[in-house]
């Protein structure tokens, strides 16, 4: 059974990656899981300068989910290269660096600096963080801004370029199509949904930034519908993200059109979750007589003449 995933010029061992911000820079979870059992590590966002992140409180558990407002706290580009990348180079899995920035120029500068380093296999461009004032969602919710960033970065690297999209827009497939038009190799979705929680005793928001990003099993149905919608609009691979806790969840994403998945919040619950999901997906394919996992992608069986009323494809 072939579970490999071709992403542009890159071939990943399998179709399970770990989502940015939920797996650090790989070294933290190495004691708890086999890093070479997963298809790729998407790093914590890297920005030009270190970011201190938001004031506490930064996380709140909600029904089958969690709200976070970390604010892209990260070590910054220089420290990433000098202290995090050396370990990542030793790991036998694809290394995908997630880049966050507050201007097109910053995305460009970070990517160009990373291009000088060995050991990076692909980039994921974060235009969808809901928890920072500068950049983040202000790019990801404007189609032209998302397109402009992709257009600017595309000629600067031959490595696969993945654009990470937010669901906090009217029609995410329009954004995915713009990324495809500008030469992105793949889109990943969904980033977190904007949400909030209130303490009725103090009558104050629980998060210091009032709103945060909702992740976990609570958002999986939304993520599946968004991936399904995007799959009708683009031909480039889609990396499905959103509440994947088990191999069954991951297979669902493949069936609605994702070529691969990212496991996020589940790693907080079990650092070995992504590896277990990869194993479970392989076992499912063996049982079902699926020779190539690619055959599952978009393999949703829809009764004839049925369409989704909530889905208005852009193309």
């Amino acid at each position: 059974m072939n579970s490999a995933f071709a992403l542009g010029s890159l071939v990943l061992r399998n179709r399970v990656l770990v989502a940015s911000g939920t797996f650090g820079y790989g070294n933290e979870l190495a004691p708890y899981t086999a890093l070479d059992a997963i298809g790729g590590i998407v790093t914590k966002s890297v920005s030009m300068l270190p970011r201190q992140g938001n004031a506490p409180r930064r996380i709140v558990e909600t029904a089958s989910g969690m709200l976070n407002s970390i604010g892209l706290a990260n070590v910054g580009l220089d420290a990433f290269i000098s202290t995090k990348l050396p370990f990542l180079r030793t790991v036998d899995t694809a290394i995908i660096v997630n880049i966050a920035a507050s201007s097109v120029e910053e995305y460009t500068a970070v990517l160009e600096r990373l291009e000088m380093e060995e050991g990076i296999d692909a980039y994921e461009i974060n235009v969808s963080c809901p928890n920072v004032k500068d950049g983040g969602l202000s790019f990801g919710t404007k189609r032209e801004a998302t397109a402009a960033i992709t257009r600017d970065l595309r000629p600067r690297t031959r490595k696969p370029l993945i654009i990470k999209l937010t669901p906090n827009v009217t029609r995410v497939s329009d954004f995915a199509a713009a990324c495809e038009d500008e030469g992105a190799d793949a889109v990943s979705l969904i980033n977190t949904l904007v949400g909030m929680a209130v303490d009725v005793r103090t009558r104050a928001p629980k998060l210091s930034t009032i709103t945060g990003g909702l992740s976990g099993p609570a958002i999986k149905p939304v993520a599946l519908a968004k991936v399904f919608e995007v799959s009708k609009a683009v031909r480039i691979p889609i990396i499905g993200i959103g509440g994947i806790m088990t191999w069954e969840d991951a297979i669902e994403f493949l069936l609605v059109g994702a070529s691969a998945v990212q496991v996020g919040t589940a790693s907080f619950r079990d650092p070995d979750a992504a590896a277990k999901i990869a194993t479970g997906m392989d076992a499912y394919c063996e049982r079902e007589g699926v020779a190539d996992m690619q055959d599952l992608v978009g393999g949703l069986r829809i009764p004839q003449n049925v369409t989704a009323p909530g889905l208005v494809a852009s193309r």
Binding site: G24, E28, L29, P50, A55, I70
Partner: peptide, 25 residues
Amino acid sequence: ESEMACGVGICQGCPIERTEGERKY
């Protein structure tokens, strides 16, 4: 004590402000 998700430094969910130093939290 703090809210935290991972417990191993990944989620960045349990900051406490430092008196001094390069890192604020």
